[in-house]
Design a protein around this nucleic acid. Structure first.
Lengths: 215, 215, 215, 215
DNA sequence: AATGAATGAGAGTTCATTCAT
DNA sequence: TATGAATGAACTCTCATTCAT
């Protein structure tokens, strides 16, 4: 990380737009979380250092421990936070979609957009697998829960072939992730999904889910 | 003396079964790789230490640097090695399968078996994403290459719907991985895939790949 | 927020029984000293932290420095305080004793009782040897002073063999301390002195002090 | 500690008088123990820092952990070592003494001499009470054991009044310690015991131990 | 071909203390 | 009279790596 080289960091402005509503402490805490999100996103959990997080947040090292008991704890918070953001975005995106195909299309596209916007989110959550398996598992379970619900309804309504809904939910998540990795993150990090890839995937999923008699 | 703290785990035998065929140096090297595979599989890349690797290999720390220029280098070798093993097993498993469905069935089942047998392999390869992205990418590209070839033939032969073959290959890999993680690794680590889950996935894939006019 | 990590142990009541007589400030100060006595008694001077003292006293860290300029200062006060308590108890205990033997018996028993009741007092005063030698020395000098006075009178009256009274005073203090340590503190912390040990010691002292021609 | 100021320390000579007999590692270890003895003797256990110990030993901080797993472990070793030295000296000193009085005289004088020569030994052992109670207790138990044996014989032979020998042993140790503290350490640290004090104590002990009918 | 010894940078964490409000 | 927030120096300990033998 180039950041290793110690520059005096941004002189902290205490009069930020959203300042007045929060206490001073709450603002500091928020700055720490934001900084941590950045730093964890750039390298390994182990490469990320408290020194760097506090430097970017514009506070001293001691201050960190006023708000988080340990490095692991802020990592957990960051994972929780990112998962929450993702779920919000997805649930908003699929609102109002009528057919299963439409839901999947909107969901997948929103997911890819999110990763394009927050490529670091990807790194962080996947690292949780090694750093704090519980956070990681919780993330997927929460995400899967929504999916399972939707798929079950679709099966009941005859729009989706009857299969183990949890298995299918995980298939779709795994699939979306690896595709995002391959076409967004690998290709320079700022890549966008090629249209033909998106269409192929949606096609694959569409037929994979569709009840036999409908095809 | 250092011995107080940790003594060599295994008194090293220099006359091992496969000894005679290799030079002393080659045997030492092999022992180091084997030890590294163990150690990397147990924790994080950062948690794994050269001390521990050499201790298990029964050699001194200095010896390590006779064979590998750095910790990262032996990690790369381990990743390459595991990927190689996996590809061999898969290619043997699908040999002789006639239909696309049969190929997928055999491939998936072999993959899950491999993970059940080497859960640590999973940890190691996924860590490569953060530790040495090139190894990681190379692993998937090699794996994808075989898949793409098979799928392209299937499409040409009209057994598989025409889609971007690389996109589909990655879909299948991502799907297999997350399922392996959820049902093998999470459930205690020694879990086996439930039948209904396997069948649901194969069903999903089968319809996902099938050409429309065949259904 | 810091509260995550530690909340005030006791919701502080400002209307305590002995409240009305003292100003608010005096009560806060007293609470701090009491808390410090507890905390210093539990571990090392260095292990004791201002955070913990203020937490138990139910005040903020900043408040501490309103009453004491430093950690060392409150430690000194605690030592002074404990020494004072001890001297009071001893002087009350020996009041009315007629012979030297009786004085020693009552004094020693009272001392052991005090240690049984306040084992932490012991830890604190002995630590002063390292933390603040002046407090420590002052404690012993004050204690010795009383002893020297009594012994000198005894010598003048022919009840005690003529020796350097200060040397004898220190002998008796050192002897009492180590015995208290061995039989009260070591044996589980809540131990009581065995009778035979007490009698042996008193016997030893008795003959040690007795004038030769009397024996 | 003035030593806090970082001076490049003594450039280490590798060809010391007792060099040839020990391996390089053993010499380093010995240097660390010697340095630790110095440093622990100067201040608190907590004030003593690994930095300072290694600086005086002329090795890097990392080297420390090649020989000792932790700061506490080297402290323990130092305590054991000092106790051993002391016991050796005492046993040599009393060798050949015939009467009980002679034994006590020689023992006490040797003890005071030892403290005059190693005032730091005193600090270190007493600190063990707080730092590692087991070391501390073990020290006294070992010292007491020898005493108890001698006293028991004396009682059997009718040279010493019959009392609980362990109680008496601890009395004598406690007494010696406090006297050493008061007249050697307090008076400037380099003090010597005044003759009259020594005589008073021996007198006190003599009569304390003497069987009644003999006096 | 192998080892024992040493290094030194860097990590996470703690804590007495200060100060604006 | 009291607090919440912040500081920064100091600490113990780990580890990949180097090198003389």
């Amino acid at each position: 990380m180039a950041k290793r080289i110690a520059e005096p960091a941004v002189p902290v402005q205490d009069t930020e737009p959203d300042g007045p509503r929060l206490t001073k402490g709450e603002r500091t805490r928020a700055r720490l979380v934001a900084a941590a999100e950045e730093v964890f996103g750039e390298g390994t959990y182990d490469e990320a250092s408290i020194v760097e997080i506090t430097r970017r947040a514009g506070v001293s090292q001691g201050t960190f421990y006023l708000y988080f008991p340990s490095k692991l704890d802020i990592f957990r918070e960051v994972v929780r936070d990112l998962g929450h953001q993702l779920r919000m975005r997805l649930s908003v995106a699929v609102q109002g979609a009528e057919t299963r195909a439409e839901i999947e299309r909107r969901g997948f596209i929103e997911f890819f957009t999110f990763i394009e916007e927050h490529p670091e989110m990807y790194r962080i959550i996947r690292q949780a697998e090694f750093v704090d398996r519980d956070s990681y598992r919780a993330h997927y379970e929460r995400l899967a829960a929504g999916y399972v619900e939707g798929l079950s309804k679709g099966m009941a309504a005859g729009q989706v072939r009857v299969m183990d809904p949890e298995a299918v939910a995980y298939c779709l998540m795994g699939l979306a992730e690896i595709i995002g990795m391959r076409w967004i993150l690998w290709d320079g990090g700022g890549g966008r999904m090629p249209k033909t890839v998106v269409e192929s995937i949606l096609d694959f999923i569409y037929h994979g889910l569709l009840p036999a008699d409908r095809s």
